[in-house]
Simulated scan of single mutants.
Amino acid sequence: MSIFERILEAISGLDVEEIEIKFRNGKKKKYKLDGLSGIIALERITRWLSNIDWDKVKEVEIELANGEELKFKPNGSGDSGIPAPMGPSGVVNLRFDSATYAIVSEDHSGVIPFDCLALLQPDPALPNRAAAAIDCLIEDGFEIQSFSLIGTNDLIYTLVRS
Rank of each mutant, 00 (worst) to 15 (best):
L64W: 12
G90S: 13
K73D: 00
K56W: 05
P74K: 13
R44K: 09
L14I: 01
S148W: 03
K27A: 15
V111H: 07
F147R: 13
Q145H: 13
A41G: 02
V60D: 06
G38K: 05
C116I: 06
L159S: 08
A132T: 12
I62K: 01
I21G: 04
P124I: 11
L149V: 14
I19E: 01
Q121C: 01
A99V: 14
A130C: 05
I52G: 02
K71E: 07
I7W: 01
S162Y: 02
I134Y: 02
G76H: 03
N51I: 03
V92D: 08
Y157Q: 07
S148M: 06
K28Y: 10
G90R: 11
D154Q: 15
G151N: 07
V92T: 08
L14A: 06
D34N: 15
F114Q: 12
Y31N: 08
V92S: 08
N25S: 10
L8K: 10
D34A: 14
E61A: 05
I19P: 08
L14V: 02
L117R: 14
Y101T: 02
E143D: 08
I52Y: 01
D154Y: 15
P88Y: 08
E9A: 12
E20S: 05
G141Y: 06
K71F: 02
D55A: 07
T152N: 10
N66K: 00
F142A: 12
K22N: 11
N128G: 00
E59R: 14
A132W: 09
K22F: 14
D53G: 02
I138K: 15
S98H: 11
E61L: 06
